[in-house]
């Protein structure tokens, strides 16, 4: 897909989550300790814009399409 390393890490985590409501931003932060919240948010925004992920029960939970 031409993802950056950050986008790829975020996408893979979202894709691997099997919860009905998807993965929370808090869980992403815990799993991606070395990544800043700014970078996580940027990656999420890119993935949303490209239609790879979507928000679920609220704006802090995401699943992959």
């Amino acid at each position: 897909y031409g993802f950056t390393a950050n986008q790829n890490q975020v996408f893979n985590l979202i894709k691997s989550c099997s919860l009905a409501e998807g993965i929370s931003v808090q869980n992403l932060r815990t799993a991606l300790k070395y990544m800043s919240l700014y970078d996580i948010r940027n990656s999420l925004q890119f993935l949303i814009n490209e239609g790879h992920i979507f928000s679920t029960v609220d704006e802090n939970h995401f699943k992959a399409t």
Binding site: L19, A20, E21, I48, N49, E50, G51, H52, I53, F54, S55, T56, V57, K63, T65
Partner: peptide, 27 residues
């Protein structure tokens, strides 16, 4: 941790919107 029917409906709606956006980007 079960979702309400309304939450399920919203998730499906958002999923379809994202798929449409994906298709748009690929077009």
């Amino acid at each position: 941790n079960t979702l309400t029917p309304e939450q399920k409906r919203k998730i499906e709606e958002n999923r379809l919107k994202a798929l449409a956006r994906r298709a748009e980007r690929l077009a």
